[in-house]
């Protein structure tokens, strides 16, 4: 498990203050595409270990962060680098779409 769960409380510390880029997966228990995306992101979190940290934020238990980032559809994944959003993927469109997003974190 290279990915970790985060909350509204530690979003600042774990995402915005992170030394490496962070991919945040906004998800919920009742969202089927989120469940399909889960294992794919887990696999990518291993592949990008030490380069990009993958974190998961449950939108039912944590409503402040999704609200302040305009999340109105899940799964949404946002890539943060140096505390700023540098890319966003709405919906689960397969592994390639996530990889495209993660590559931005490594190259930009």
């Amino acid at each position: 498990m290279a990915s970790i769960d985060i909350t509204d409380q530690d979003f600042e510390a774990k995402v915005l203050q992170s030394k490496i880029p962070v991919l945040v997966d906004f998800w919920a228990e009742w969202c089927v595409p989120c469940k399909m995306a889960g294992p794919v992101l887990e696999e990518l979190s291993e592949a990008y270990k030490d380069k990009i940290q993958v974190v998961k934020l449950n939108v039912d238990q944590n409503q402040l962060t999704p609200g302040s980032h305009g999340i109105m559809s899940i799964p949404t994944t946002i890539l943060f680098k140096d505390g700023k959003e540098i890319g966003r993927q709405v919906g689960f469109s397969g592994k390639e779409a996530f990889e495209e997003l993660m590559k931005k974190g490594v190259t930009s």
Binding site: W30, V32, S73, I74, T76, V90, G91
Partner: peptide, 16 residues
């Protein structure tokens, strides 16, 4: 899309 426009009510209804 993803900013209010959706095609999956079961996924996104709770945001509304």
């Amino acid at each position: 899309i993803g900013k209010g426009v959706s095609s999956c009510a079961p996924c996104d209804a709770p945001f509304f």
